[in-house]
Design a protein around this nucleic acid. Structure first.
Length: 260
DNA sequence: ATGGTGGGGAGCCCA
C-alpha cells in the first residue's frame, strides 16, 4: 500500500497538477493539506475519474484537509479531538482496507505558528499536545497507523539547507521540536528517516528569494508510523521533481510503501 | 535589514 501526503496549497489552483501526479505515481491513498475550500468547492470529478474516492474536511479560504483513496475507506472522522471550540479544519481520519490488512490513516495540517512568540505559536503548541493525546489513543490500537501531513516542524538541523535561518522560526524553535520529539518518543517512527536517512531531503521550498533554484529547502512534511506500520515499511520517498513544474505548490509529495 | 512570491477572494490574511 502506497500512502502519500501532499500540501497542494489550494486545490482549485492545483487540480490539474494533482491529477497528473496521481496518474504517474499511483498512490493508493493521499492525504491532502491546504485545500483552501469548503467541501462543496472541492473539484472531485478529475480524481473520481482516476478511481479515487474523495473525502474532505474543508474550510473557506484557509486550511482544509482531504483523503483521496482508491482502496475502500471506513470509519471516517473529521476534526482533531480535544477542543470543541476549535473551528480550523486540520485533521481527518479513516481506516484504509489493504489487501493484507487495515491501516488507520490520519491526515493532518499542523498549525504554522508564526510569528513566535505569540497567540499563533501558543495555538500551535496546544494543538500539538492535543495531537499527542490522539496519537496515544491511536497507538494503543496496536494496529498499523500512519499519521501523514504537513507538520510545520523541521525536526533537526539536518532537515534544513540553512538551519541558521530558522532558529527563531516557529517551524524550528526548541518548543516545536520538543513537542514533535515527545510524539516520536511515545513510539512513533519517522517513515522517511527510517528508510534510508533523510539529511538533505526536503519537502518544501519557499516561493520567495529563489529558494527552489538554490535548493534552499526544509523537510516539514512527514509520515509517522506506529510500530505495527513500521514493521511493514518497504519503501519511502519524496517526489522532488514536482517542485519544478509550472505553477507548483511550495510543497512536494512525500510517501511510504507498506506491505499491507 | 528589506523584500522577495503565491492562493483565496474581494480587502487583506495567511504561508
Amino acid at each position: 500500500m502506497k500512502i502519500a501526503s501532499f500540501n497542494i496549497n489550494g486545490i482549485k489552483a492545483r487540480a490539474g497538477q494533482l491529477a497528473e501526479w496521481l496518474a504517474e505515481a499511483r498512490p493508493d491513498v493521499v492525504a491532502l493539506q491546504e485545500i483552501k475550500t469548503v467541501d462543496e468547492g472541492f473539484p472531485a470529478g478529475p480524481f473520481e475519474d482516476l478511481g479515487y474516492r474523495v473525502e474532505t474536511h474543508g474550510q473557506k479560504s484557509y486550511n482544509g484537509v482531504a483523503l483521496l483513496s482508491r482502496l475502500p475507506l471506513d470509519a471516517i472522522s473529521r476534526g482533531l479531538p480535544g477542543d470543541d471550540a476549535d473551528e480550523q479544519a486540520r485533521w481527518i481520519e479513516a481506516d484504509v482496507e489493504g489487501e493484507k490488512g487495515v491501516v488507520r490513516l490520519a491526515g493532518l495540517y499542523l498549525p504554522n505558528g508564526n510569528p513566535a512568540p505569540g497567540p499563533k505559536f501558543d495555538y500551535k503548541l496546544a494543538w500539538m499536545e492535543r495531537m499527542r493525546a490522539r496519537a496515544a489513543e491511536l497507538r494503543a490500537l496496536e494496529m498499523p497507523v500512519v499519521m501523514a501531513g504537513d507538520y510545520n516542524v523541521i525536526p533537526t538541523d539536518d532537515d534544513a539547507a540553512r538551519p541558521e535561518a530558522w532558529t527563531e522560526d516557529a517551524l524550528a524553535r526548541p518548543e516545536s521540536r520538543a513537542a514533535f520529539r515527545r510524539i516520536l518518543n511515545d513510539g512513533w517512527r519517522d517513515g522517511l528517516r527510517e528508510r534510508d536517512g533523510s539529511a538533505g531531503l526536503y519537502s518544501f521550498w519557499d516561493y520567495q528569494a529563489g529558494a527552489w533554484p538554490r535548493n534552499n529547502g526544509i523537510r516539514i512534511d512527514h509520515l509517522l508510523l506506529s510500530p505495527q506500520a513500521a514493521d511493514r515499511l518497504t519503501g519511502a520517498g519524496i517526489d522532488r521533481d514536482q517542485r519544478g513544474r509550472d505553477k507548483p505548490s511550495d510543497h512536494v509529495p512525500v510517501w511510504v510503501e507498506l506491505d499491507l
